[in-house]
Amino acid sequence: MSATERVLRRRRSSIQGSRLARYAVTIVLAVIAILMFLPIYWLIVTSITEPEHAFSLPPEWFPLHITSASYASSFDLIPFAVQIMNSIEVTTIVVIGQLLTSSLAAYAFARLKFRGRDGLFTVFLVALMVPLQVTVIPIFILMRTLGLLDTQVSLWLPVLLSVFGIFFLRQHFLSLPDELEDAAKIDGAGHWRILFQILLPLSGPILAALAIFSALVTWNDFFWPNIMITSPDKMTVPVGLVFLQAGLSGAPAVVVFAAIATVTIPLLVLFLIAQESIMRGIALAGVSR
């Protein structure tokens, strides 16, 4: 075997080796993905399996004894439909409210000139270091004094301000050239028109990222409603789920699973439809924090 042949053979085998390595990485990735999804698949399959077969071991990975009884029980045991509506209402109010207050404030910080503007902005940024877990006690006392405990107002009013949203939108507005507005200003457009007709239409992806991020946080929050709410018919979904499992001694695990699946399956469908934009939104909001 000549030296050239040996080099060629070695190169060929290293190319084959790297192709093998690439397949191996893909296979490992696929195994991880399957393992990650397995608990969710188990949740859904268990929730539609007859209670006496639901937790048999090994699990019935292909459901043979299908029933919707557990779903019916979960809606009987707690006012789950009302709780889902509560979550939808609170999330909608918070998302729209945060987008509105953030847009207005971001415009002021990016475009208006007034004394103390940058100082005030810095004061706002301090809020990023003060999480709700610290302000919860005074806000709880405030809500109690105002008689707002156990109401929906106590869930959305304190989180209507999003300093992150202001920061994020301000950065975006600063990146848009002033010339965009000059023509409108000559035509006599005021700040509100400039914001709503020129800047915001150019901020689609940013607003979408903010909306996805804030909807996710609000929809999934457990800490805050767990403190503010005590009546089952005022609860949001996460608190309702835990209440179903722990608050009423006796909801069987399958019923809890059915309740979790009731909110997880629509989320999964929504995610599969809008996967690209949801992941891009989360990445965008995440990277700029």
Binding site: I32, I34, M36, I40, N220, F222, P238, T264, L267
Partner: peptide, 12 residues
């Protein structure tokens, strides 16, 4: 598959 759990609540 890897990302979906991020969207679920800690409660669930």
């Amino acid at each position: 598959a890897i990302f979906f759990p991020v969207l679920m609540s800690w409660a669930a």
